[in-house]
Nucleic acid binder design. Structure first.
Lengths: 345, 345
DNA sequence: AAACGAATGTATAACGTTGTAAAAATCAGG
DNA sequence: CCTGATTTTTACAACGTTATACATTCGTTT
């Protein structure tokens, strides 16, 4: 049944030329309804399906875009991947997924198309990649995702990290917190982390509070365990933060676990804000306040940008700031409210 | 620099035939070292890179395998996807990722290759798909992943769900629990859920305990919210389970959240066991006991099976039972131990 | 009714690669 | 230095598709 059937077979079966069958398949406009139906019948009977490799060879298009993310285990990226896949399907494109581990070396390979070479375009969420690494690539269209702030001629979709971080810290200050720790200033290169630290610093200064750099904990990764370790380090140093702003939700949750182990209550003793609004933050013993980026919009914009470039769009590089909002949950309840909740429970 | 350079260009530059260049590129054995070096020099100078579409058209291979999972948002699948991608890279294959939402219709489309047509093989983790849906596909090699127990000629990699579920329930019984609820018997078709319910039922019977079907909660999905809703429903029905076995970790965590809201303590009042051992379970206020499948092994076996079939392996369909183990954490501490911990904290 | 333009169908040549078979170059032995 | 065997290189034909350019048909207009 599925022994490869080609245009030639259909053409023979329908008694027409190969090109006519091709015309029907591609909805070419000048085909009489009668002819179209006749060919279509043969197509259906033989179960013809176009060979994408041949089409690609001829047209130079594959119908595949690659999405390269640092880590799939991180739910934010998993959810983002889902959004990109859905957006791509809308446009009859399929998505090839790759993960870089956030390592510069892997990111370079991906950006130059060495890992996936059958693609029409690339959506890349870089962590360590440097601007110079993208300097002389002359390849498929590239759209950058996330926080890095390159000054390069590629479309870039992100939320305003500094502003979002300031919103988070402002919220903590508005609760009366004064010693706000930041967890997740990444060891080594990582501009995204730096932007969020900057927002933390700026907002504290703006509020006339000291930005105690001893309350900034650097980590190697950005998972639960990294957050937990960083939190432990801060507490072990003898400092007593009354609030924590974490680089992302998993780190915030890891930090809350350590606070719990040390007998510190969230939010009464320490208020916590995360970043990314992953689903998991909504179901812990203490639900997590978080910055919530509009993932669907980011995914959709990324796909649309790649496809636009692919279709010859030569407008100057786009710099889209996607929406975000601060979602307040239990981890930043006011002290009175938290007390009320505690007695009630 | 990257204006497409083909074998023809290299051949012209080196002053040899196209096929000779091809021979060099493919490490064909009968090429003199001198010739090899001469051609290689031209390749380097011109920056030649093989055109995969053409190679595919000629050889009938793409170097791409598809991985179709129900949901990326579920961390288990995200972690599994990472494992598959890594295993594929080992073999110079790349992975095209798709998600089906666990819906039969989507699963059928995927299984027949309608969504991704540039693939050499397919790894599919079905939920609702029926055996009959796979009956007359004569397509690329297919490997089934996960819990469904089809009787079809395809390789199948899974853990023994009934046994794992029995282990989980036995563990709860060994703690002295008598009213063990099961959360996540899925509404509608879903064999995996049924297998785990069966394990629950069998183990209770084996222990001489009644299997109260009123303690089984069906759900539509398998996320945090579904687990929470199911738990709430059981409690609202007036029953008082002293243990919960959930279909997966997110559901277990959702359930724990509801228990927490109702003032029930885990594990003192209700012990909880999940399934999949996702990272998130290790960082809640109460860490989660869970069945931990060997994800790396599953991913590796799946890739190896697909590639073996692709290379003409015609042995009878493989039925691999991957390893799993029960990882005990706080959510099933013994009552005495839990009490000790409580006074200590 | 002839002639014209528009609409529709067809033959052929690519796209870049590799398998096959045949040609050319090399080598060993007399 | 020739013969025959062996190694190395080459020419050519696919793989399945679409673009180009041409051929046919049809419906109008003169």
């Amino acid at each position: 049944m599925d022994v490869r059937v080609s245009l030639k077979d259909v053409a023979a079966h329908a008694g027409v030329s190969i090109k006519t069958v091709s015309n029907v398949v591609n909805n070419y406009q000048h085909v009489t309804p009668a002819m179209r139906e006749r060919v279509q019948r043969s197509i259906d009977i033989l179960g013809y399906r176009p060979n994408l490799a041949a089409r690609h060879l001829r047209k130079g298009r594959t119908g595949v875009i690659a999405l390269a993310l640092p880590e799939l285990g991180n739910p934010y990226f998993a959810e983002l991947a889902a959004a990109v896949i859905d957006a791509a399907v809308e446009h009859d494109y399929i998505v090839l997924l790759d993960h870089t581990g956030g390592r510069r070396e892997q990111e370079i390979l991906v950006s130059q198309g060495f890992r996936a070479r059958v693609i029409d375009g690339l959506i890349l969420s870089p962590i360590e990649l440097e601007a110079e690494d993208l300097r002389d690539r002359e390849n498929v269209p590239l759209v950058l995702l996330g926080e890095r702030d390159y000054d390069l001629p590629y479309d870039h979709i992100a939320i305003d990290n500094v502003a979002a971080a300031r919103d988070a810290v402002r919220h903590l200050i508005s609760l009366g917190r004064r010693n706000v720790a930041f967890i997740g200033a990444r060891n080594g290169r990582s501009e995204p982390a730096q932007l969020r630290v900057r927002g933390w610093r700026e907002e504290l200064r703006a509020a006339g509070l000291p930005a105690d750099e001893g309350l900034v904990a650097a980590t190697d990764g950005w998972g639960h365990a990294d957050g937990a370790a960083a939190m432990a380090r801060i507490l072990d140093s003898g400092r007593q933060p009354d609030a924590v702003f974490a680089y992302d939700d998993p780190m915030a949750i890891g930090a809350m676990r350590v606070l719990h182990e040390r007998g510190l209550r969230v939010p009464e003793d320490v208020a916590v804000v995360g970043f990314d609004d992953v689903i998991e933050g909504r179901f812990g013993a203490v639900t997590l306040t978080s910055i919530s980026p509009d993932k669907e919009a980011i995914g959709r914009l990324a796909v649309e940008s790649v496809l636009a470039r692919l279709n010859g769009d030569t407008r100057p590089p786009l710099r889209v700031s996607a929406d975000y909002r601060l979602v307040e949950r239990e981890s930043t309840l006011g002290r009175e409210e938290a007390a009320r909740r505690a007695t009630a429970g």
